[in-house]
């Protein structure tokens, strides 16, 4: 029986993940909150070291409790999994939530056939299912994710699959138990653009069909703009901006989001103009800048930015949250001038 809660399927409140390392304490995730409803896609955007992958691993309960200190609440279907016994989280994983990784080759075992691995994933959570049943379901699923000749392909090994086909097989494996939450960590980064387009379309179609909640983690704003309903921009382990895709990508209010958008080379507009990069480098999580973590790279930083950590506050339309010290009218004016 699946627990049925009110409201969003996944709710994360004030999530903090810390690692103690030789060089000091790493605050990989520092007070992140968000929610995802069934049938919706949340895009988490950030550069390397922004904490986006650590967040997703925490949601799946994949952090080693000996190394990571996790606090806050992660409500999956109304049930808090922070502090839940490893055994119970494992039970949820694969059945209620599943993950797709960037590199399907390292996520699939090289010595077993693709079909066997997917069937195994099914039988773990359907202890009553016979081998034949699992096999049948596997072939069905492989066909569903667009793998031609699924009967034959199921008996092949991962190395016999192309990159795109492997990622499809991973998706089939993730969806075989019809999970309510799917986390995709850079699922298309290793793929060619034409194959990426196929996979993104597939994810969209499958979501309509299975009505799962999806978290898509990526550094690519283009990918986010194509599939996400909501966007969360992370920087230095914190949320910089959060809102609907329209709000964040069309009317962004955080200078970091502006910088990201200005950095992306586009197929339109003046090709001879220089790009507008963000100066400097992403910060190290061990040695995060004081105040607003973005201030050393921000062209609008004030004295206050250097001292106070900005709170994530509502800005503009309902549901749009921004963590920036700039007064809201200034932000709107600066961005309007920039367009």
């Amino acid at each position: 029986m699946r627990p049925v809660g009110d409201g969003p399927y996944l709710q994360v409140r004030d999530l903090r993940v810390r690692f103690d390392t030789e060089d000091g304490v790493v605050r990989a995730v520092d007070g992140v909150s968000f929610a995802v409803e069934r049938g919706k896609t949340l895009g988490i955007v950030g550069e390397s070291g922004s904490g986006k992958s650590v967040t997703s691993l925490a949601v799946l309960g994949l952090h080693d409790p000996k190394r990571a200190q996790i606090s806050g609440e992660i409500l999956v279907g109304g049930r808090d999994i922070v502090g839940l016994a490893e055994e119970e989280v494992r039970h949820l994983r694969g059945r209620d939530m599943a993950m797709i990784f960037q590199d399907p080759l390292s996520a699939l075992h090289p010595y077993y056939t693709v079909g066997r691995q997917i069937a195994e994933a099914y039988r773990v959570h359907h202890s009553g299912a016979s081998r034949r049943e699992a096999r049948q379901r596997t072939v069905e699923m492989l066909g569903r994710v667009g793998i031609p000749q699924p009967e034959r392909r199921a008996d092949q090994y991962p190395h016999e699959f192309s990159g795109g086909m492997r990622q499809r097989a991973m998706i089939a494996m993730a969806l075989i138990n019809n999970p309510d939450l799917l986390i995709a960590d850079e699922p298309t980064t290793a793929l060619d653009v034409t194959v990426q387009a196929q996979i993104l379309d597939l994810l969209g179609d499958l979501q309509d069909e299975f009505d799962s909640a999806i978290i898509l983690i990526t550094h690519d704003l283009g990918v986010v703009s194509q599939v996400a309903d909501e966007v969360l921009v992370m920087y230095g382990g914190r949320v910089a901006e959060h809102g609907s895709a329209q709000q964040v990508l069309r009317r962004p209010q955080h200078p970091y989001t502006w910088g990201l958008l200005g950095s992306v080379p586009s197929l339109h507009g003046d090709a001879d103009a220089d790009l507008m990069p963000i100066r400097g480098n992403p910060p190290s999580l061990i040695n995060l800048p004081s105040g607003c973590a973005f201030h050393p790279r921000c062209p609008h930083a004030t004295n206050r930015s250097r001292v106070d950590v900005p709170e994530l506050l509502p800005a503009g339309e309902a549901g749009h949250l921004v963590a920036c010290h700039l007064p809201e009218p200034d932000r709107q004016r600066l961005f309007q001038e920039a367009r």
Partner: peptide, 26 residues
């Protein structure tokens, strides 16, 4: 044309008209 069409474009924000989708892999 297919290659250009496959690039996700922030400016388009989820519009899907006129997109060309190639089937299969190289």
């Amino acid at each position: 044309r297919a290659l250009l069409s496959a690039i996700p474009n922030v400016a388009k924000l989820g519009e899907s008209e006129g997109r060309i989708r190639l089937s299969g892999d190289v």
